[in-house]
């Protein structure tokens, strides 16, 4: 598959995800309307809402993701190496310099988002920036810039907002019914609403593995290998990225700002060593190839 076919595929998949999302929401609304005896105008509202959400996810996914992750803009003065290394790689690639953000966290990780190379964002944790040297950082940034060039960012960001949202809503609804209070004796409207939440939560939770599968289908682990290889093409220095990945994999700390929806964006799985359902999710439906394999592939270049 050539570079251009890959980009075309990514654009098609992005469109497909939006279509599937709208269809899914409409179908869910239809079933609920039938089940609870509401009128079919609920479906109309659901269609409008899901259409608006798709619009938002296309245009503002980067802002939303940065907001969820608690990122702030990186200045040249404060993060000299991060800033200049990105600038330099963009000179080499003749592409627009993406906006740069940092997350205040000692865990080592990085991701790219946005809708196209002209509206792209690269974000790294301060832990990553503090512990990698310039050559290693160059490897990581080059990896992220390949995601930008391949339009991986558009697909991954839309997946994050639309598909990830369903997974998150399922989590919240279940939590709200389990711990959200609401006394058993309370048989008023609040009680009925809770039943609705519970049912929706259960249904979505049952769908969760399918959602995970969807994310995986869309993302595919080859994407990471490909970005590694393209990134090395930019730096001509496979050792930089390989030793960065080695350092990142030795870092045992999970990234607090990451969740089910955003995990697949990162260069290495941010949910490692997280206990509970989220951790299980990440190991069962891994969107990242093992770092060892990636390093081996890089050493072979």
């Amino acid at each position: 598959m050539t570079h251009y076919q890959l980009i075309a595929r990514n654009k098609q998949k992005s469109f497909l995800i939006i279509a599937v999302f709208i269809a899914f929401i409409a179908a869910a609304a239809y079933i609920m309307a039938k089940g609870f005896g509401y009128g079919l105008d609920v479906v109309g509202i659901a269609l409008i809402v899901s259409g608006a959400m798709s619009f938002v996810s296309y245009w503002f996914s980067d802002q939303i993701i940065l907001g969820i992750s608690g990122a702030r803009p990186a200045t040249r003065k404060e993060f000299f190496d991060f800033y200049t290394v990105t600038e330099n790689l963009c000179i080499g690639q003749r592409m627009k310099v993406p906006k740069l953000y940092v997350i205040e966290d000692t865990a080592m990780n990085a991701f790219a988002t946005g809708r196209d190379p002209d509206h792209a964002v690269v974000c790294a944790t301060t832990g990553l920036l503090a512990r990698l040297d310039r050559a290693e950082l160059e490897g990581v940034v080059a990896h992220e810039l390949s995601h930008v060039q391949n339009y991986d960012i558009r697909l991954m960001s839309i997946v994050t907002i639309l598909v990830g949202l369903i997974a998150l809503v399922a989590d919240w609804m279940l939590r709200m019914t389990a711990w959200g209070g609401g006394k058993k004796s309370d048989r008023s409207e609040g009680g009925q609403l809770q039943v609705v939440f519970f049912v929706v939560g259960i249904v979505l939770a049952l769908l969760s593995p399918i959602i995970a599968q969807l994310i995986q289908l869309a993302i595919s682990r080859n994407r990471e290998f490909l970005a590694d290889a393209t990134g090395v093409g930019m730096t001509k220095n496979p050792d930089g990225l390989a030793s960065a990945l080695a350092k990142i994999s030795q870092d045992r700390e999970p990234l607090e700002a990451a969740n089910k929806a955003t995990a697949h964006l990162y260069i290495s799985n941010p949910l490692k060593n997280v206990r509970g359902s989220v951790g299980m999710f990440s190991s069962l439906f891994s969107t990242h190839p093992p770092v060892g394999e990636r390093i081996k592939a890089l050493r072979g270049i």
């Binding site: 000299f80 200049t84 290394v85 600038e87 330099n88 790689l89 000179i91 080499g92 003749r94 001509k236």
Partner: peptide, 20 residues
């Protein structure tokens, strides 16, 4: 010194662009 070092990198990448 760091600015000069960075400029050297920038020169390297702009030359690479020309080569490609």
């Amino acid at each position: 010194m760091t600015e000069l070092g960075d400029t050297a990198d920038k020169l390297m990448y702009s030359r690479r662009s020309l080569i490609d």
